[in-house]
């Protein structure tokens, strides 16, 4: 892979509480290359959003980065002060959140929001910014873009609003986009539109995308590579096709098995017994071992191996062999 746009190494986020320190993200490493979409998938409480927030510097105190490094486009960002981080956030990192309403200022016309963002981060004139705002809205597929720049966010439907958010995230030409559950609030048909749009724009511009979602189907359709998270740790990292069709981590395997699939018909769904442990009650050893069908003594005693290479790997003492699963 060429030089990655985003490189996370051994990232640990801690929240001090009076019952002790919780680690919603623990020793996570992954890279995202130019024009690549990395799907970060996991169930609630897996720490997938927290990792994304750490990258943009939006951890809500007392949560903080305790260890590890985050590199964006060759700059280390995890220790940047507030003002520097803010500038970088707008310029280098774009954000798309689940609820498009909270990402847009309800009192500003969308054209103004786009123009202001561009003026703040790009060295262009106001008239050029205004022209680009219309172009940006056209690009994300908003009909009658030239007229709609004067509209307020509440005048758009949910799907159109999310398109505006994408235009806003992309208008300063960032090298990285963090999309946190961008389609969860949308209907299936609109979801397909948004995913297709996100894919198209990032391919064309070479933007790296961190696509955080709980939906395996979205990952399968949109992502190039996938990072599976469990209880704050990375369970498996690799190309979507490999991880989804031939999972090596028992958790990934269980997750795939419990997803209803057309080809499986009405058979009983595979069940992972139990539930994800709470952060304040993590089991010793590998966090997954109490629910794991292949667990051995070693799993209860030693914490699972960590994936240190940002390119791929599996965090399991006894990974399933690719051939065996097929």
């Amino acid at each position: 892979m060429n030089e990655p746009i985003l490189s996370i190494r051994d990232l640990t986020v801690e929240i001090p509480t009076r019952h002790g320190i919780l680690s919603p993200v623990k020793g996570v490493s992954y890279d995202i290359g130019r024009g690549e979409i990395l799907g970060v998938v996991g169930e609630s409480g897996a720490g997938k959003s927290m990792a994304g927030n750490a990258v943009i510097g939006l951890l809500s105190p007392p949560a903080h980065i305790a260890e590890g490094e985050i590199w964006v486009g060759g700059t280390r960002v995890d220790h940047l002060a507030g003002e520097q981080m803010r500038r970088l956030r707008g310029k280098e990192i774009g954000m798309v959140f689940q609820d498009p309403l909270t990402s847009l200022n309800p009192l500003l016309r969308i054209g103004d929001q786009l123009t202001e963002t561009m003026l703040a981060h790009l060295d262009i004139s106001r008239s050029e910014a205004e022209a680009r705002a219309v172009a940006a809205l056209e690009e994300v597929g908003i009909p009658g873009a030239a007229e709609r720049v004067g509209s307020y966010p509440h005048e758009f439907s949910g799907g159109m609003r999310q398109r505006v958010v994408i235009a806003l995230a992309l208008c300063a030409e960032p090298s990285l986009i963090i999309a946190d559950e961008p389609t969860t609030a949308l209907d299936v048909s609109v979801q397909a539109q948004i995913i297709s749009l996100l894919k198209k724009l990032c391919r064309e511009r070479g933007t790296a995308v961190m696509l955080i979602t709980h939906d395996m189907g979205v990952i399968a359709e949109a992502a190039d590579r996938v990072a599976v998270m469990y209880a704050g740790q990375l369970a498996e990292l690799g190309s979507v096709r490999e991880v989804l069709t031939r999972p090596r981590h028992p958790y990934t395997d269980g997750l795939m098995g419990s997803t209803p699939l057309a080809s499986r018909g009405k058979d009983r769904l595979h069940q992972i017994p139990g539930a994800m442990p709470r952060l304040d009650a993590l089991p010793p050893g590998c966090a997954f071992h109490p629910r794991c069908p292949h667990a051995q003594d070693r799993c209860a005693e030693n914490p699972g191996p960590r994936i240190e290479d940002g390119a791929g790997g599996v965090a399991c003492w006894f990974p399933m062999t690719r051939e065996a699963v097929a």
Binding site: S44, L58, F97, T102
Partner: peptide
């Protein structure tokens, strides 16, 4: 507000 975007159960 958006930084509070942790999953519901959390």
């Amino acid at each position: 507000e958006t930084s509070l975007n942790t999953p519901t159960s959390e």
